[in-house]
Design a binder for these strands. Structure first.
Length: 424
RNA sequence: GGAGAGGUGGGUGAGUGGCUGAAACCACCAGUUUGCUAAACUGACGUACGGGUAACUGUACCGGGGGUUCGAAUCCCCCUCUCUCCGCCA
């Protein structure tokens, strides 16, 4: 969430910036300032009364010890009124405090000044394009045909075991998954990321920390018996490692990565363009996460972009990089770049990575801060994350782009991981 | 799942109703001493919110929430987590 400070100090700036996300913040910003004022006033009052109460209590203690029971008892009677007042004021303070929190939680992050205005994916800005779109000769099968032809991924079987959107990878299909995961992790390690293998169910506090809760319950599978959520991305457990943590400034940036399966309910989003591997309820992904110094976070973002781009280049896939417009970026992000690869049989661009800087927005929820040698108070860090990479659409593009009449050619870089160079 | 013991500041750990935001020790930081390092000594050493230009100061926080009391780290209730034993189990 945004810090109170920026809202208090620059309300107009906040309102202007949020327009880029298509969000009219005027009313809520005003409400936040009002509520905060009320909260502050009631705190000032109740603190005074509590101070008085503490003073009296101390006095009573002393009187009792000195054996002055009569005085002590009469002082004790005085406290009753005070106690009631405190109770009432405390209640209204808590009420303001809760109101303020829920207002703050509902305000999206401010977009960076680079973010283009716009409302839909059509307004995203293409910043780079690379690779070569293959000219397929002869048969040109979409991946959902290819997986059947070579019997490597089975949707019907997944439906039998679980439901739609939970595919079963078989034989070389399964091996290709494992190869990609290992390839991504090895590359991440070379880029300085520490591998972690986190739980794939998380508690409510973690969901809140990264911004999936309280608003987006619909995206996550909820285990009601334990009140756990299945992770929609490794971002959730990996970033939450730093919840309520004060880091040493010298340790920044902190770079972690994790492979996890990801689970998304994607309620109501089924329809055209989501065939095959294009959209799943369970998929595999390697995620990179950085906790960065505020002054260095955009450097970190550039590094992450270069890392993701490098992965795609090594896989030999044609790609483009988009800077998301205000309307298409997420609630919590300040700046997001999407990577899309071209899938030659569908003749479509498929999103395979999303790399974002959240600045202090997540850190403020997480209470992830750093402290320098000379700094008096801890400051919020910046947090960033990106997919490096999400597997299914990468697989779709590899299958479609590398198909020949006699089989699917495995990208060179994956051959040592797969142990085969063709799926046939 | 059953029984018991616990959760105190970065760490170890004292603290069973008031003088405890919290002893002591260790670590960290600043300084003194020393040719350097070490040792020794001195001092500083939590977080949040409020007031103040500032020095400073008020309030809250001893796993979380509620209660008793003039007053709670300390007593009571609920939850949670950890450890030990038993059961089950990859």
């Amino acid at each position: 969430m945004l810090t109170l400070k920026i809202i208090q100090d620059n309300p107009d700036f906040v309102i202007e910036r949020l327009k880029i996300k298509g969000y009219n913040a005027r009313e809520i910003v005003q409400k936040i300032i009002e509520t905060n004022n009320k909260r502050r006033d009631s705190q000032a009052k109740v603190d005074l009364l509590k101070a008085e109460m503490n003073r009296l209590s101390k006095e009573i203690g002393i009187l009792f010890r000195e054996g002055k029971t009569t005085e002590a008892n009469s002082a004790r009677e005085q406290t009753a009124v005070l106690k009631n007042e405190i109770k009432e004021l405390d209640a209204s303070f808590s009420e303001f405090d809760e109101q303020l929190s829920s207002l703050l939680v509902n305000l999206p992050n401010l977009p960076n000044e680079l973010v283009p205005a716009g409302t839909t994916a059509d307004d995203n800005l293409e910043v780079k394009r690379g690779g070569v779109i293959p000219q397929l000769s002869g048969e040109k099968l979409p991946h959902w045909e290819l997986i059947k032809k070579y019997d490597i991924i089975d949707f019907d079987l997944g439906t039998k075991l679980t439901g739609a959107g939970f595919p079963v990878y078989k034989g070389k299909g399964a091996k290709l998954q494992r190869a990609l995961i290992n390839f991504f992790l090895d590359e991440g390690e070379k880029a300085g990321y520490r591998e972690v293998l986190p739980p794939i169910v998380v508690n409510e506090a973690s969901g809140f920390g990264t911004g999936q809760l309280p608003d987006k319950e619909g995206m996550m599978y909820h285990i009601t018996a334990e009140n756990f959520y299945m992770v929609p991305t490794a971002e959730v457990p990996v970033t939450n490692i730093y919840r309520d943590v004060i880091l040493d400034e010298a340790d920044l940036p902190v770079k972690n990565m994790a492979y996890t399966p990801c689970f998304r309910r994607e309620a109501g989003s089924w329809g055209a363009h989501v065939r095959g591997l294009n959209r799943l309820h369970q998929f595999d992904k390697v995620e990179i996460v950085q906790i960065a110094h505020p002054e260095k976070s955009y450097e970190a973002l550039d590094q992450m972009l270069a890392h993701v781009e490098n992965l795609i280049i090594k896989l030999g896939l044609p790609y483009r990089i988009l800077r998301l417009c205000g309307g298409d970026m997420s609630f919590t992000s300040a700046l997001t770049y999407d990577f899309e690869v071209f899938s030659a049989a569908q003749e479509r661009w498929l999103e395979v990575s999303s790399v974002s800087n959240f600045e202090t927005y997540q850190a403020n929820r997480l209470k992830c801060r750093y402290k320098g040698k000379d700094s008096k108070k801890p400051e919020l860090t910046h947090t960033l994350n990106g997919s490096a990479l999400a597997l299914p659409r990468i697989v779709a593009a590899i299958l479609e782009n590398n198909q020949t009449g006699t089989g699917i050619k495995i990208p060179d870089v994956l051959v040592p991981y797969c142990g085969f160079d063709i799926i046939n």
